[in-house]
Every structure is written in C-alpha cells, then in structure tokens.
C-alpha cells in the first residue's frame, strides 16, 4: 500500500501544494490532475523517492520510503518527462541496459519480444537518435513490459504517442492493475482506464 500523508512541496519561495493525503491499494489507479506548474511532476518525483517532501511523509507498506531505499526502488518503476534513453545506443541496448540497471536483467529474446509488442520490431538495431519522438517514448515505455515491479509512477506517459500506441498502453496499464499492481500517473489526455479503484487527485 502506497500512502501519502500531509505532503507539502515548496519551490523557491512558493508553496506549490500542502496537505496532500492519499492512499493507494493494490489494483488502484491514481490520476493526478492540475494546471501547468501546480506541482504534478514534483509530487511524482517525491513519490518515487527522487526528492523529499517539504513536509509530510510517503509510506510504502507502512514504512517511510526514505528508510527503505533499495527495497522500495525494487518494487517501483518511474518513467518521467526525460526518456531515460541514450541516443548513441541502439533500441535493444537501451532496453537491456536500463533493465539491468533497474535490477532485472533480461535476455535478448525477452527484449525482442517486448519491443515487438510495443511496436518497434525491425528497429531493434537502430540507434535511438534516429527515432521519432513517439518511438523514443515507446522505447522508454517498453521497460514496463519487462520490469517486475508493482508500483508504476508515470509522468505524462502518453505524450507524443499515436492512437494505436495509446490503446496499447491503456491495455498494458489495465492488465497491470488487474494483476494487483498500482499506477500513479499524470496525463492531459482523456483516457479511461478500468481499475478496481480509481483516485483522482486534484492539485490547485
């Protein structure tokens, strides 16, 4: 169970939000809404442990995530604004290396399968720098197919994706939620994802 308790965020002199509370059970989806600059990305970075909240605490299974460190990172996958891919590496290398660094090594076959599913078959050996924005996004999202984590924190995962890819990701998220995973995401696109419980978090 992922919990946020009285979270607050301060950027410079400005308080972006305060007293944010939520609790996310297995199979739960939380969508974070808010205008630009309302602190959506800041909140997501807190939830994945990259930054610390100015006040409050984030708990995973009733323990503060900063006390869990590696144990929390082992069950969590974050895909942010930045693609997290290297331009000079091929699609295949990117996926295998990023998975290995995230703690789950995968074979070339597994990687090939995942890339095929996400619609990049035939492009495995291309360096990422020749891909389009949408295709780069797919390379980043391919990690979700091969990781074995239960908490997915996704910052605008649908940006630059075409209709078919959005459908694909939607299906992927629904399947993950069905299997008892959790998803926290922000998106400006309207998307209906079926889930056991859906929380809508509105930031001012």
């Amino acid at each position: 169970m992922l919990q946020g308790i009285n979270l607050a965020c301060v950027r410079g002199d400005r308080e972006l939000f305060k007293n944010i509370n939520f609790s996310l059970e297995a199979g739960g989806l939380m969508q974070v809404h808010g205008p630009n600059g309302s602190g959506k990305t800041s909140l997501l970075r807190m939830l994945c442990g990259l930054s610390n909240p100015a006040a409050g605490e984030i708990r995973w299974c009733d323990k503060a995530i900063h006390s869990l460190d590696g144990d929390y990172f082992a069950v969590m996958t974050y895909i942010g604004h930045l693609s997290g891919t290297k331009d000079d590496l091929t699609v295949m290398e990117n996926l295998r290396i990023s998975s290995a660094l995230a703690g789950s090594e995968i074979s070339a076959d597994q990687a090939k399968e995942a890339l095929e599913y996400i619609g990049l078959s035939g492009r495995e050996a291309l360096p990422v720098k020749v891909l389009s924005q949408g295709q780069r996004r797919r390379v980043a999202l391919a990690r979700l197919l091969v990781c074995k984590t239960s908490v997915w924190i996704l910052d605008e995962p649908l940006v630059a994706l075409d209709v078919a890819a959005v459908k694909l990701i939607q299906g992927l998220l629904e399947q993950h939620l069905l299997q008892g995973g959790m998803v926290v995401m922000t998106t400006h696109q309207e998307i209906d994802i079926a889930a056991a419980s859906i929380t809508q978090l509105q930031l001012a």
């Binding site: 990172f73 974050y78 693609s83």
Partner: peptide, 19 residues
C-alpha cells in the same frame, strides 16, 4: 543527467555508490 538515465540510476535498487 540531460537524457534522464541518471535519474533512473538513482532509482535503481542497487547501491548508488557501486554505480
């Protein structure tokens, strides 16, 4: 840092010092 792979490394369950 620029392409986001560094933040992924920070979120790795392995020790960052080792990285």
């Amino acid at each position: 840092y620029v392409d986001g792979t560094l933040e992924q490394m920070l979120l790795s369950p392995q020790s960052l010092s080792l990285l």
